[in-house]
Simulated assay, not measured.
Amino acid sequence: MAKCEMKLPEEFLLKISKLGSDFDSVADTVLQAGGEVVLAKVRSNLSSVVGRGTKYDSRSTGELEGALGLSPSKLNRNGNHDVKVGFAEPRSDGGSNAKLANILEYGKHGQPAKPFLKPAKTASKQACIDAMTQRLEEEVKKR
């Protein structure tokens, strides 16, 4: 059986120990701060690709852009805190926003791909880390 040992920097461990039992609530606020940065980038990328480069006039209703949002922070089955950027379901016509987003992202026969999620993830990674770091510093100073 394999064994793995991870060592965290002392400075980070001291910050976490200051939080004590408040760690879960602080983790939620830190993740929300990072999620807001990513959500803003995804939203701007989505609005730039919807209706662009089509053969016919766009039939966009704005419902896909309106359904984009950020989930509240939750514990996953592994005990980690998660926030998700995604689409509310269902659409007013009974269709799926996730299906339309997938078609936009990857394309389909006769419709070229217009990626908006993957470029947003790449472009917002450092800004997200910075926002989360700043929020963590603020929360540690409060305590």
Rank of each mutant, 00 (worst) to 15 (best):
E89K: 05
G95A: 05
A101R: 00
A88S: 15
N102R: 14
T61P: 08
G95N: 08
E63F: 00
V83D: 06
G69K: 05
G79P: 02
D57S: 13
L104V: 05
G107D: 06
N78W: 11
R77C: 07
N78A: 08
S71L: 10
L68G: 04
V83A: 09
P90F: 02
L70C: 11
A88I: 06
V85N: 04
N76Y: 07
A98E: 06
G79L: 12
D57F: 14
N102F: 15
V83W: 06
G66P: 01
S92M: 14
K84R: 15
G66D: 10
E63C: 00
R77A: 08
L68I: 03
L70P: 08
K99F: 06
L75V: 06
V85K: 04
G79I: 11
K84Q: 13
A88C: 05
Y56A: 10
G94Q: 03
D93N: 10
G107K: 11
S96N: 03
K108T: 15
E89T: 01
G86P: 01
R91V: 02
G107Q: 11
R59F: 05
V83I: 14
S96E: 02
G66M: 07
K99M: 15
Y56C: 04
D82I: 13
G69N: 09
K108M: 15
R77V: 10
R77T: 08
A88F: 01
N78K: 15
E65W: 06
I103N: 02
S58P: 03
N97G: 05
D93C: 04
E63W: 00
L64R: 01
G94I: 03
G95W: 09
L75A: 05
E105H: 08
T61R: 09
L68V: 02
N97H: 12
Y106P: 02
N78H: 12
Y106R: 11
L70A: 09
N97Y: 00
A67N: 03
T61Q: 07
R91F: 02
L68T: 02
N102W: 13
S71Q: 14
R77W: 15
G107C: 08
L64K: 02
V83Y: 06
S58N: 03
E65L: 14
G79T: 09
F87D: 00
G95H: 05
L104E: 03
S73C: 13
A88E: 07
N102T: 10
K74C: 07
G79A: 05
H81T: 13
L100P: 00
G66Y: 01
N97M: 05
K74W: 00
P90W: 05
S73D: 04
L104P: 00
E89Q: 05
I103G: 00
P72K: 12
N80D: 11
G94T: 01
K74A: 09
G79F: 10
E65V: 14
